[in-house]
Amino acid sequence: MVRITGQKKDNKELPASGEAYEALLMQRIASKDREAFESLYYDYTPRIGSFMMKLLKSPELVDEAINEVMMTVWQSAERFDPALGKLSTWLFGIAHNKALKLLERQRRHWREQTVEAEDSELNENEWEEVNAESATVDPDNPERTVLGWELGEILVWAMDRLSPEHRIVLELVFTENYAYQDIAIITDCPVNTVKTRMFHARKKLADLLAKRGYSPYDLQEGHS
């Protein structure tokens, strides 16, 4: 029953791209066409996998999440409605849910493993505070450049310390180029919540940068 093709097949019956391609592809998957399913796997999972890697940090966890996303696609393909958005938006919505569940599982696991976690509830703010604890340095310390803490690296470091909700919105805006309306669909929340999350993510970033001795002024164009 299982075929290992090793390559994405050229699916000549499908249009090259666009809404018609997505609609037909999903129709075929809904009718349990495994070739169409394989096309979707090779076309869409690289982007979703990269998005998840930034959140989950573990190839094994990403594999698990992609497996679950693909199973959901196979079982619910008929629920995709091209009128409500692009296929990638629909897939990112599924991926977003799976990633959050896996992150929650990770957090529970960490809590169980950490003996010192006496007040076990690790909320969104604590997540960032705990991660930022080791970040405080003297702003005037010349070692910050000697040690290679350039602005780009500081930003990457700071991004890794954001809560999943804040990290997700930043990724969807800056890496995946989604409009806020699409992000609202993916994260299943109102548009204003998306904007508020973005605002708070930026504020947290600024706080983290300050702990590394950078001010928002450093970030103005042509200043870094």
Binding site: P46, S50, P59, G152, L155, V156, L219, E221
Partner: peptide, 20 residues
């Protein structure tokens, strides 16, 4: 700040690439 975030490309440099 946002342009800098955009330029950094959100950590793709140190994140392992995932492939199907």
């Amino acid at each position: 700040l946002y342009r800098q975030i955009d330029n950094v490309n959100l950590g793709t440099s140190n994140t392992p690439i995932w492939k199907p």
